[in-house]
Amino acid sequence: MADQLTEEQIAEFKEAFSLFDKDGDGTITTKELGTVMRSLGQNPTEAELQDMINEVDADGNGTIDFPEFLTMMARKMKDTDSEEEIREAFRVFDKDGNGYISAAELRHVMTNLGEKLTDEEVDEMIREADIDGDGQVNYEEFVQMMTAK
């Protein structure tokens, strides 16, 4: 299944994987998964984290390695993001709930994920998604960005 991913997608997933893999040992533990999910405003229980890991832990060693992570991402993409997942993601970014993602809100979430971005990089990300040019990202623009192939 992971063989249907483009090189660009694999590179993006590698970057995402390293955000989860806090200690850089090449595997994601339940603790690391929990840290990232909490930084995104989720509050999973230990059991939920274990279930999430077990779902993709092909070799049964209790952690997720990069090939397992790729399989999980490929699977998720095949079920292409349901509207509800996209709306949920939008809410994570839209901290003040005004229906727009500002540069400050984007920077806040990315920083929580451990991504240190310059102001230019954040502005560039907003510009790429900002179709109507108002300097922020509304829900429609967010959907376009998330579903762009």
Results as ranks from 00 to 15, higher is better:
3 D>T: 02
4 Q>H: 06
4 Q>T: 04
4 Q>P: 14
4 Q>A: 04
5 L>M: 11
6 T>R: 02
6 T>G: 06
7 E>T: 02
8 E>W: 10
9 Q>P: 05
9 Q>N: 00
10 I>A: 00
11 A>D: 13
11 A>N: 13
11 A>F: 07
13 F>T: 00
13 F>D: 15
13 F>V: 14
13 F>H: 01
14 K>G: 00
14 K>E: 12
14 K>F: 00
15 E>V: 09
16 A>E: 02
16 A>G: 11
16 A>L: 11
17 F>Q: 15
17 F>V: 10
19 L>A: 14
19 L>F: 03
20 F>R: 15
22 K>W: 01
22 K>Q: 12
23 D>Y: 11
24 G>I: 15
25 D>Y: 01
26 G>P: 04
27 T>Y: 02
27 T>W: 04
28 I>R: 13
28 I>L: 11
29 T>E: 05
30 T>E: 06
31 K>C: 00
31 K>Y: 10
31 K>L: 09
32 E>L: 06
32 E>K: 12
33 L>Y: 05
33 L>F: 14
34 G>L: 11
34 G>T: 05
34 G>I: 02
35 T>M: 02
35 T>A: 12
35 T>L: 04
36 V>P: 01
38 R>I: 01
38 R>C: 08
38 R>P: 06
39 S>D: 01
39 S>W: 15
40 L>S: 10
40 L>Q: 14
41 G>Q: 01
42 Q>L: 13
43 N>C: 07
44 P>D: 08
44 P>S: 11
45 T>F: 14
45 T>R: 11
45 T>G: 03
45 T>E: 15
47 A>G: 11
48 E>S: 05
48 E>T: 00
48 E>N: 07
50 Q>C: 06
50 Q>E: 12
50 Q>M: 01
51 D>R: 05
51 D>N: 08
51 D>V: 02
52 M>H: 07
53 I>G: 04
53 I>N: 04
54 N>M: 09
57 D>K: 09
58 A>M: 03
59 D>Q: 09
59 D>Y: 08
62 G>S: 12
62 G>R: 14
62 G>A: 15
62 G>E: 14
64 I>G: 08
64 I>V: 14
64 I>N: 10
64 I>E: 04
65 D>F: 05
65 D>C: 15
66 F>C: 14
67 P>S: 11
67 P>E: 07
67 P>V: 10
67 P>T: 12
68 E>S: 08
68 E>A: 15
69 F>D: 06
69 F>Q: 04
70 L>N: 15
70 L>K: 13
70 L>M: 12
70 L>T: 01
71 T>F: 02
72 M>H: 07
72 M>V: 14
73 M>S: 01
73 M>I: 11
73 M>C: 08
74 A>R: 06
74 A>F: 02
74 A>C: 03
74 A>T: 11
75 R>K: 12
75 R>G: 13
75 R>E: 14
75 R>I: 13
77 M>W: 09
78 K>V: 00
78 K>M: 00
79 D>R: 11
79 D>G: 12
80 T>S: 11
80 T>F: 03
83 E>A: 08
84 E>H: 02
84 E>P: 04
85 E>C: 08
85 E>Y: 10
85 E>R: 13
85 E>A: 08
86 I>V: 11
87 R>H: 11
88 E>C: 07
88 E>P: 09
89 A>V: 10
89 A>I: 10
89 A>M: 08
89 A>N: 01
89 A>W: 06
89 A>C: 04
90 F>Y: 12
91 R>F: 05
92 V>E: 06
94 D>E: 03
94 D>C: 10
94 D>A: 06
95 K>V: 03
95 K>Y: 03
95 K>F: 04
96 D>W: 06
98 N>L: 07
100 Y>L: 07
100 Y>M: 06
101 I>G: 02
101 I>F: 14
101 I>V: 13
102 S>E: 06
103 A>C: 00
103 A>N: 14
103 A>Y: 00
103 A>E: 00
104 A>C: 04
105 E>I: 08
105 E>L: 07
106 L>A: 07
106 L>D: 15
107 R>K: 14
107 R>V: 04
107 R>Y: 01
108 H>F: 14
109 V>K: 05
109 V>F: 13
110 M>G: 05
110 M>C: 04
111 T>D: 01
111 T>M: 03
111 T>Y: 01
112 N>Q: 09
112 N>E: 09
112 N>G: 15
112 N>D: 14
113 L>T: 00
113 L>S: 08
114 G>W: 06
114 G>K: 03
115 E>V: 10
115 E>G: 10
116 K>P: 14
118 T>K: 10
120 E>Y: 13
120 E>Q: 02
120 E>H: 14
121 E>S: 00
121 E>Q: 07
122 V>Y: 05
122 V>R: 04
122 V>Q: 00
123 D>G: 13
123 D>I: 15
123 D>Y: 11
125 M>R: 04
126 I>F: 09
126 I>E: 02
127 R>T: 07
127 R>M: 10
127 R>N: 11
128 E>C: 03
129 A>K: 14
129 A>L: 04
129 A>P: 13
130 D>H: 07
130 D>L: 03
130 D>W: 00
130 D>E: 11
131 I>N: 14
131 I>W: 14
131 I>L: 12
132 D>R: 03
133 G>V: 10
134 D>E: 14
134 D>H: 01
135 G>A: 12
139 Y>C: 10
139 Y>P: 05
139 Y>T: 04
140 E>F: 04
140 E>A: 12
141 E>C: 06
141 E>N: 01
141 E>G: 12
142 F>D: 04
142 F>P: 06
143 V>P: 14
144 Q>N: 03
144 Q>C: 05
145 M>N: 15
145 M>T: 12
146 M>W: 08
146 M>Q: 09
147 T>R: 08
148 A>P: 07
148 A>D: 06
148 A>S: 06
149 K>W: 08
